[in-house]
Design a protein around this nucleic acid. Structure first.
Length: 431
RNA sequence: UCCAGCGUAGCUCAAUCGGCAGAGCGGGUGGCUGUUAACCACUAGGUUGUAGGUUCAAGUCCUACCGCUGGAGCCA
């Protein structure tokens, strides 16, 4: 056995004999030749086994090897223009580590339910592999963006005590005889982080027990939430657009191969450059009216409304100053026009809908306490949150970005379920 | 929770007006020295989601249930 190398680094070993450890992706044969596509997690390479060049045992193994069997191959790296990788391996020895039987995912088409039942294996397929690699790049560049700007990561809890905004969409668990809920958002805790570190962000899973069966919903999804002290709504919108632009540019720069594998039209991503359009809620309503959409002024936008609005632009669009009545209790109101909240949402293009929701937060103690009472929320549960307005309160703002919807948009997918390794949906908790 | 559509081989799908259950892929056997979801030949593989009903006859029509898919509301 020669040096074990990763296929992604194979170009450094042209003409040399190397060993690759991986899995059989596909097999083709022609007479005394066996063409074996071997993947090792970094890349896929075609291995050529010629009957007269290997031992009888190696050729028999190459003949009977099945899809997704684990294998160890040793051969000479040969440049080959016919190969998509540019190189193939001329095999000297071929060894089966474990022979797989009846791998369920075949080369032809499969239905969604079947693939989801085999999600643990589906991840090995080239498109799913590419999507998860792009997801990784999105998360990597998101962390990079905040880390490079002096933000401190403040991890927020997943178990939370009394419900923040009603219990209907919360997952309830037993916490040593008390009720605890899985977090819907780390925001309130991130605000505490902002008062300690100036610029803070949290990143983790969030849970919503919404009975939503659509292409945009998961019951468990990941959210990254920056929160900044001495920051107003305008600062918040600028941070949001710079952030989204940074992630898109990073994917374009570092994940070309993966974008090609999933056949993403990257021209549409190239258009995502600063600045993004920013429109007032009322302007968004005007767009709907111009397009003859039946819409009641003051309501929140539905799925089709969002698509109509975002279709006016080729970049993500930020909508700001929503009616306060349809927004959360902690959002600060516009002093000039208190009917409106200092809130903003970002809608992704191509009908992908809301990827960001954010606002300037209410920073006045008495006003916030009043809102808590208006919403019939427990004053006791929010005592610590009110403390933030009691001890050195400052204007501050933040937002939350849903990772899965962002991945879905950047990858151009039909459904968010493919953007996370093991999706949790209303009707699915397996595997 | 509500609305709509779909459940046939391991998988993806056919099956005309209610009249013999059939293809491809995958599996097995054999062939081929450059294959690219390789190809060619042969082969095995079925309680048509479940229960009931109508009919000489049901994959096909009716009822209920189960499952899946998409959507609405709500949201990232």
């Amino acid at each position: 056995m020669s040096k074990v190398v990763k296929i992604a680094e194979i170009s450094n070993y042209a003409g040399e004999e190397v060993t690759i450890e991986g899995w059989l992706y596909n097999k083709r044969s022609s007479g005394k030749l066996r063409f074996l596509l071997v993947r090792d997690g970094s890349e896929t390479i075609q291995c050529v086994v010629f009957k007269n060049s290997v031992s009888e045992e190696s050729f028999m193994d190459a003949d009977k090897v099945t899809q997704e069997s684990s294998v160890r191959v040793t051969g000479v790296v040969a440049e080959d223009k016919r190969s998509p990788l540019g190189y193939e391996l001329q095999i000297n020895t071929f060894e089966i580590i474990q022979l797989a039987h009846d791998y369920p995912i075949t080369k032809k088409e499969h239905g969604t339910d079947f693939l989801m039942d085999h999600r643990h294996l589906w991840l090995r397929s080239s498109q799913q592999y590419a999507i998860i690699r792009i997801r990784h790049e999105i998360i990597r560049s998101a962390r990079e963006f905040f880390d490079d700007r002096g933000f401190t990561l403040v991890d927020t809890p997943i178990f939370t005590p009394n419900a923040a905004e009603g219990t209907s969409t919360l997952f309830e668990t037993d916490y040593f005889g008390e009720n605890a809920y899985l977090t819907q958002s780390g925001q309130l805790y991130a605000e505490a982080g902002a008062m300690a570190f100036g610029k803070a962000y949290c990143f983790g899973p969030t849970f919503r027990a919404e009975k939503s069966k659509t292409r945009r919903h998961l019951t468990e999804f990941w959210m990254i939430e920056p929160e900044v002290a001495f920051f107003d709504l305008n600062d918040d919108m600028i941070l949001a657009e710079e952030f989204v632009s940074h992630m898109v540019q990073s994917v374009i720069k570092n994940k070309q191969k993966e974008l090609q594998a999933i056949e993403r039209d990257t021209q549409k991503l190239e258009l995502v450059k600063l600045p993004f359009p920013k429109i007032h809620y009322n302007e968004a309503v005007d767009i709907l009216k111009k397009n003859n959409i039946d819409f009641k002024d003051g309501d929140d936008f539905g799925g089709t409304d969002e698509t109509v609005i975002s279709d006016q632009f080729e970049k993500p669009v930020i909508i700001h100053h929503y009616p306060a009545a349809i927004k959360a209790f902690y959002m600060k109101r516009d002093e000039q026009n208190p009917e409106y909240a200092l809130a903003m949402d970002m809608l992704a293009p191509e009908g992908y809908g809301e990827i960001i929701g954010g606002s300037q937060r209410e920073d006045d103690y008495d006003t916030l306490l009043g809102r808590i009472k208006e919403h019939n929320l427990s004053e006791e549960a929010f005592k610590w949150y009110l403390d933030l307005r009691k001890y050195g309160s400052v204007p501050h703002s933040g937002f939350g970005l849903g990772i899965e919807r962002t991945v879905s948009w950047i990858c151009g997918l039909k459904h968010v379920r493919e953007t996370i390794p093991f999706p949790r949906l209303m009707q699915r908790i397996y595997p």
